[in-house]
Design a protein around this nucleic acid. Sequence first.
DNA 1: CGCAAGTTTGACGCTGCTCAATCACTGTGG
DNA 2: CCACAGTGATTGAGCAGCGTCAAACTTGCG
Lengths: 281, 281
Amino acid sequence: MHDIDRQLARGRDVLVQRSYSTPSSAHDNRISDGTTRLVNRLSSFVHLDDEERQAVVALTLSRRRFVAMDTLIRESSVPDRACLILSGVAFRYRYQASGRRQIFGYLLPGDLCDPHFIITNTCDHNVGLLCDSEVAAISLLDLKTTMSKFPKIERALLMMALVDAAIMRECLLNIGQRDASQKLAHFFCELAARFHDRQDTIIGSGVTIPLTQGELADTMGLTVVHVNRVLQRFRRDRILSWSRCHFDILDYPRLTSIAGFDAGYLRLRETLAETRTASYG
Amino acid sequence: MHDIDRQLARGRDVLVQRSYSTPSSAHDNRISDGTTRLVNRLSSFVHLDDEERQAVVALTLSRRRFVAMDTLIRESSVPDRACLILSGVAFRYRYQASGRRQIFGYLLPGDLCDPHFIITNTCDHNVGLLCDSEVAAISLLDLKTTMSKFPKIERALLMMALVDAAIMRECLLNIGQRDASQKLAHFFCELAARFHDRQDTIIGSGVTIPLTQGELADTMGLTVVHVNRVLQRFRRDRILSWSRCHFDILDYPRLTSIAGFDAGYLRLRETLAETRTASYG
DNA sequence: CGCAAGTTTGACGCTGCTCAATCACTGTGG
DNA sequence: CCACAGTGATTGAGCAGCGTCAAACTTGCG
């Protein structure tokens, strides 16, 4: 089940989580204990009182470590639990009849993957791991009970789903309208901004992202060969550097300008703070 | 406000709504009165009792007719109401700095466009109308109140959002991985299946869809010229026919086979019926 | 040492884009 | 009734971004 051999063969490291100097941050070089990941995430949408916070924490009691390339959720399986990413990076994908793989998006710590099967019962895509990760299993039954008991928690989950939709709209625009350089630049910008929001990295000073060029290609709908050529231009211009599945962003400002990136749609903490009062004061 | 001149200049007709022979259907050639549109939609996800049904109906009291090319919601506006499509077709889109337009998706009768600004406060895209339509305005305040009072309604809205996400995933795959013919075929399949679900048309016997080739191009991320060339192949093969913004599907089976279309992700009535019991019995 | 994954490079061709013109249809104003 | 304008559809020529195929190289691991 834990396909350790494949992970070793691939030789991936645990995602480098740089320390981030925030007094309140319980973050360090160990894998985060993650107890408050989901609480924090939901709290950025609605204010939760102590009872509600405890209810959320109670959901995430069952934790487990996985290694890179493990599969959390399999297509057309009927899962009885949702997965909460505590540390690491997961990604959603599906193979087509043609054999091509489309990657739909990436899940960072605090993301829930995904409550979709509450309705569908079966999942329509796979969820895999890019690197060693810690994951909390949340029983769907518990989740439903908690949602019913605490409407504000259900509200927050609805909002997470709506943010997901906004991210996918942006992704659609990215894939539909931009050329290869812009696509790649935009992708790195988004991931960097989201990492930054979770306080796992600092924008512009060495965001490290564990990815192969093949994964980039399948995310963007390009071929590995073409991705490689575009990336080499980025490397020559000192915008990105990489070695063996680890990308480092050297020049975030230039990346945003190539992509025309505006982080607004991500509804990150900073941007949310401005509007939340009006919306939910 | 009602830009009648533009509509007339464009010469669009009201969407042809073919009668559909279902005994229980309150449908005819007039524009549907739409009172129960939203009730029906939400009911496909959760069972609503009489009180809840009345609460939903009460939301949709303020109705209004619009003509083709009217704009329902403008980007970066701060709307105080959501729009429910009662009849007609709306679409979401955004213009980029480059001047190109990306169309994110289409809204059919019963769709809510969109509760997103409950969180964002400002809307990140425009919503326009493809043809003359009837729309109910729903105050966001009322919506929030109703959601809080009736958790099952909030649950159903969450599910609508999740289905939207599934549609967008499919769209992402469509735009990212398929060639122009497959993209177009897939698009027509999806729209036909969704129309069919709302009982506005009959698959395979003349689904009429009001669209220009320019709109198709902006949906698929292609150019008008290329869309035209692909469509002409479809016309030669008697798969589609069209004249002045009205497309007719002649050979739905062939279209699905070109696209590799599987309607499962739409969670339509038929497919839902199978799984709902297990999920919400 | 030899394998497996991933990266890199080159040659070549096709899909889909650009630019530009023409046609067809419909409604308008005279 | 007819010329005109506006929108959308259609066609052609030429080009480029990106894909395909194929091979070599690099690195980590058994």
